[in-house]
Amino acid sequence: MELKSRFPARQTLLIDADDTLWENNIYFERAIAAFISCLDHKEYSPAEVRVQLNQVERETILSHGYGVSSFRQSLITCFERLSHEHFTESKRELVSSFAQSIIDQEIELLPDVAETLEELASRHRLILVTKGNQAEQIDKFQRSGLREHFTAIEIPREKDPQAYFAICAKHELSPNTTWMIGNSPRSDINPALLAGLHAVLVHHPHTWALEHEEIDEAPLGQHFLELTSFAALAEHF
């Protein structure tokens, strides 16, 4: 028996990209593991080095934004701060190569993403909403093979309530029929709820630590769903 959608057709679904449609953070985690091994700090444990790197990343984001180039700068800065050895050009190239390994990755769609998007697009309007380096995000989107399912792509510098207000104004979206769907409480869920939208958290086991945050309670009249898989969206939309 066909499962009827809970919400009516012609909703607008704003959908995150990294770690919602395709794998992303696992590549950064591998690069970080290689970096920590290379640093081989004699005083800090790997966990303590990671704490230092997280702080450097927070600082770098403010000046360089998101993306691999920002991450590369974070690795270099962290190495310079923590290493007792001279930072030679060859060592700089090695550290930079950890970031380059992320760019060299093929796009790996998460399970059932392509099929689910095709089904959702038959009933709803889909807009990709992803923060980060614009050139990097557009390149990944083009290589993903998912372009046909989306009517537009938006790449704000940061996903905050103002960004969601701007997207809704630009595309003439009604908040009561607009949903933000993604894996990040900090970027996809809480600011969307603050902007008056509905939200769906699609859990990913390796969501970036800097995107973790307690989820706010949905205001009266707004919906919040938690799903364990992207495919489950078709049961609700």
Rank of each mutant, 00 (worst) to 15 (best):
E172N: 06
H212E: 15
A218G: 05
M1P: 05
P156F: 01
A34P: 00
Q105K: 15
G182S: 04
T77W: 03
P111N: 10
M1H: 08
I127E: 06
M1S: 13
A234V: 12
K42P: 00
I153N: 01
D188Y: 04
Y164V: 06
P175E: 11
G65H: 01
E57A: 04
Q73W: 08
I76P: 04
E48G: 08
V68Y: 08
F165R: 15
H212V: 12
R123L: 02
I153W: 02
V49E: 08
N190R: 07
I36H: 06
I32S: 05
Y66Q: 04
A166K: 14
L62E: 13
H171M: 03
F141W: 09
H204C: 03
H223P: 05
T12M: 02
V49L: 10
E148K: 13
L128F: 02
H171Q: 08
A166D: 15
L39D: 07
K4E: 13
T178G: 05
K91Y: 03
A99H: 04
Y27Q: 12
V202K: 03
D216T: 13
D139A: 15
H223K: 14
L227D: 07
R157A: 09
E115S: 14
A232D: 14
T228R: 06
I15W: 01
P219G: 15
G145T: 01
C78G: 13
L14K: 03
F71S: 10
L193S: 12
V113L: 11
L128N: 07
L197D: 01
E48S: 11
L233D: 05
E213C: 13
L197K: 01
Y27V: 09
Q222V: 12
F141K: 00
K91D: 01
L193E: 12
G221C: 15
L210H: 10
R147F: 00
E119H: 03
E154C: 13
N54V: 05
H212G: 11
P191V: 08
V95K: 05
V49Q: 08
S96W: 01
E80T: 11
F237A: 03
F141Q: 00
L210A: 14
P46V: 06
F35L: 10
